[in-house]
Computed example of a mutant assay.
Amino acid sequence: MRTSPWIRQHLAAVRALLVLTVITGIVYPLAIWAVASLPGLHDKAEGSIVEINGQAVGSALVGQLFTDSDGNPLPQFFQSRPSEAGDGYDPTSTGASNLGPESVVDTPGDPALIRTGVTPAESGYKASLLTSVCSRSRAVGALEGVDGTRPFCTPGGVGAVLSVIGSRDSLGNVVHPTRVISVNEQCSTDSYTPRTPFITEYEGVPVECATFGENYSIGQIVPIRGDGPADPVVPADAVTASGSGLDPHISPEYAEIQASRVASARGVTVDQIRALIHDNQDGRTLGFLGEPGINVLLLNIELDQRYPPATR
């Protein structure tokens, strides 16, 4: 007796299901497991866990913070780059700020709320990418004792951006300013925003500080370059987060400006720290991809092993 086409089709489907289940559910996973168990690949397959005296202290693939309980940088350690993953290097909240180069105007916070004791973030304040870069550069400069200024940043560490209000030409550029506001410098008596704008006037018009609640979007947004060096001392990776927020590396330039602080905290010479930086530098992938980098965790581990800090 001939089997009906309907039954033959379903039998073929069942056979295909069984074959694919064996291949993709058993053979392939076992093959991957076997390859991952080969010498030289096993540690990577297990997450590149770094251990000291049998205790896991982190992963060579995931960065981490080297700060105290209050979030202050520990002077005896090299610091990682900024992270937007959760509260910093949180593998369960990996991600970036998603802010682009046109993010130059801050979202102001409510001064009345800030005076009650809430944080700027809780008051609605949100820094633009430009202000984040400026404030981080200023903080790194203060920590490392180097020049933290950079173009388009105010001395107070926010984006040097004006809203210029007035009549415009056919291209939309303001030609006769009537009012100029420093949009990232909010008029307030609180401690986190200054009252006096970074410049006193623009094209003959006095510059005002920004008042909370006013809308300055009708003005033309004009970033002011200022006198910051074209090649800032604080490198880009010290003031920007990676796309994942988990980058374990910093640039040799960022490591270099930290050398003096680390040497002082550990009671050794700067040359000794620089030699360690050089020894821990990774080259470009395949010799030409990316930039040289230094794994902060591995560098700090070697620091502890060779030059224990004078104080903790």
Rank of each mutant, 00 (worst) to 15 (best):
2 R>V: 04
3 T>K: 08
3 T>G: 03
4 S>I: 00
8 R>P: 00
11 L>D: 06
13 A>H: 12
16 A>R: 14
17 L>A: 15
21 T>P: 08
22 V>R: 05
24 T>A: 13
25 G>P: 06
25 G>F: 09
28 Y>M: 07
28 Y>V: 09
30 L>V: 04
32 I>K: 03
32 I>E: 06
36 A>M: 12
38 L>N: 07
39 P>H: 06
39 P>E: 05
41 L>T: 04
46 E>A: 14
46 E>M: 09
50 V>R: 00
51 E>D: 06
54 G>A: 12
55 Q>H: 12
55 Q>C: 00
57 V>F: 02
61 L>K: 02
62 V>R: 02
62 V>Q: 07
67 T>C: 04
67 T>I: 14
71 G>Y: 11
77 F>N: 07
79 Q>T: 07
80 S>F: 01
81 R>D: 06
83 S>N: 11
84 E>N: 15
87 D>Y: 13
92 T>Y: 13
94 T>C: 05
95 G>F: 11
99 L>S: 04
101 P>G: 06
102 E>G: 05
102 E>D: 04
104 V>I: 13
109 G>D: 00
110 D>W: 00
112 A>Y: 01
116 T>N: 12
117 G>R: 14
121 A>L: 14
128 S>H: 06
128 S>F: 10
128 S>E: 04
132 S>V: 03
134 C>M: 07
137 S>T: 11
138 R>H: 10
140 V>C: 13
141 G>C: 12
146 V>K: 12
146 V>W: 05
152 F>D: 04
154 T>D: 01
155 P>F: 09
155 P>S: 13
156 G>A: 13
156 G>P: 05
156 G>F: 07
159 G>R: 07
159 G>L: 06
159 G>Q: 03
162 L>N: 02
163 S>I: 04
171 L>V: 04
172 G>R: 12
172 G>K: 11
174 V>F: 12
176 H>Y: 12
178 T>A: 10
182 S>W: 01
182 S>K: 03
189 T>Q: 15
192 Y>L: 12
196 T>E: 09
198 F>D: 00
201 E>A: 15
201 E>V: 08
202 Y>Q: 04
204 G>V: 05
205 V>I: 15
206 P>D: 15
206 P>W: 14
206 P>T: 15
207 V>G: 07
217 S>M: 09
217 S>Y: 08
217 S>H: 10
218 I>N: 15
220 Q>Y: 08
224 I>M: 13
224 I>C: 11
228 G>T: 08
228 G>D: 10
229 P>H: 13
234 V>Y: 08
236 A>S: 12
239 V>W: 00
240 T>D: 00
247 D>I: 02
254 Y>M: 14
254 Y>W: 09
256 E>H: 07
263 A>P: 14
275 A>G: 12
276 L>P: 05
280 N>W: 02
284 R>K: 09
285 T>K: 10
287 G>L: 09
287 G>V: 11
290 G>K: 08
290 G>V: 02
292 P>G: 11
292 P>V: 05
294 I>W: 00
295 N>C: 09
297 L>I: 03
300 N>F: 01
301 I>V: 11
302 E>F: 00
302 E>R: 08
303 L>C: 10
306 R>H: 03
307 Y>S: 03
308 P>V: 03
